[in-house]
């Protein structure tokens, strides 16, 4: 790509990102997903845990043995906040190409004389930006409503969030490409987020799982993000989460590369098969 085409490419990327953000803000109910959902989503789990703990906390000792804390509220809302970040990414980035397919604009956009990755990069940038805004707002609201406090290093927390981005959005790009082939998003989202809910220790300590499920859990980057955030909130710093940071950096690079590769493969396949406009 020469300099002029490079400029055209980035202009197209920014146009996609701008269009995505404009559409997102166009529907005023986006506020709900940013401000209300992070507070409301854990609600059912918090009170289920309270019921399971018993009126005098008679069952809390069992939970503490597995989770290392009796503060089940902080344990839970940390898991659900990251789960929601992942979920919002799946619907946004994961559904972006599918939405264009449904609205009949995917074919015309792909006719632009640019490398077809401009769509993926544009949506990724907009989604990552909005995702970070949502995550920040979510953390603020759960701190206010559930009284979650950061006892550890804020810089470790920030680094952890930033280093989680490639693994989360890399998964999203792979997912978005698969959605184009399957031509169905709801079922796939339910499946992926279901796996995350089961294996990443969102609502319970991973130690309660059978051995084989714990092995699966250790492979998933989000398990590392969630456990590291819990460690930092409990007072940890860079030293406490060094292992998780390394794992997230490597898995993030691999997943981002796989994401763009999947997009390129699916794009070629659909152009050859002529199925781009079908839905």
């Amino acid at each position: 790509m020469d300099e002029a085409s490079g400029m055209h490419y980035w202009r197209a990327v920014m146009a996609v990102a701008k269009r995505w953000l404009t559409t997102y803000i166009r529907y005023p109910t986006w506020v709900i997903s940013v401000l209300l959902w992070p507070v409301l989503f854990p609600f059912g789990y918090v009170f289920s845990m309270r019921a399971l703990a018993g009126p005098t906390g008679e069952a809390l000792s069992s939970f503490a043995q597995l989770a290392g804390t009796t503060d089940y509220v902080t344990f839970l809302v940390t898991g659900t906040t990251f789960w929601m970040w992942f979920n919002i990414m799946l619907w946004g980035l994961g559904g972006s190409f599918r939405m264009e397919q449904l609205r009949g604009t995917l074919e015309s956009n792909w006719l632009a004389p640019l490398p077809k990755t401009f769509l993926a990069v544009g949506v990724f940038l907009a989604e990552a930006l909005m995702g970070l805004v949502q995550l920040s707002m979510s953390m603020l609201t759960i701190a206010l409503v559930y009284g979650v406090r950061l006892a550890g290093s804020p810089w470790a927390l920030l680094s952890l969030i930033l280093i989680s981005i490639p693994s989360i959005y890399g998964t999203g790009l792979i997912f978005a490409s698969l959605v184009l082939v399957a031509k169905e998003i709801n079922g796939l989202i339910f499946f992926v987020r279901g796996l995350i809910t089961v294996f990443c220790g969102v609502t319970y300590p991973i130690a309660v799982l059978p051995g084989w499920m714990q092995s699966v859990s250790r492979v998933l980057p989000l398990s590392h993000s969630v456990s590291a955030v819990r460690a930092v909130l409990a007072g940890g710093g860079f030293g406490t989460i060094a292992g998780q940071l390394r794992y997230l950096a490597v898995s993030g690079a691999v997943l981002m590369a796989l994401g763009f590769l999947a997009y390129a493969i699916i794009q070629r396949r659909m152009l050859h098969a002529g199925t781009l406009g079908q839905h």
Partner: peptide
Amino acid sequence: MWMTPVYFMARSFAVDGVNIGL
């Protein structure tokens, strides 16, 4: 997939396999 976490959540609060809190 939604039921599985519920089962494990209940197990994590079980005392000798029984949910005495509930």
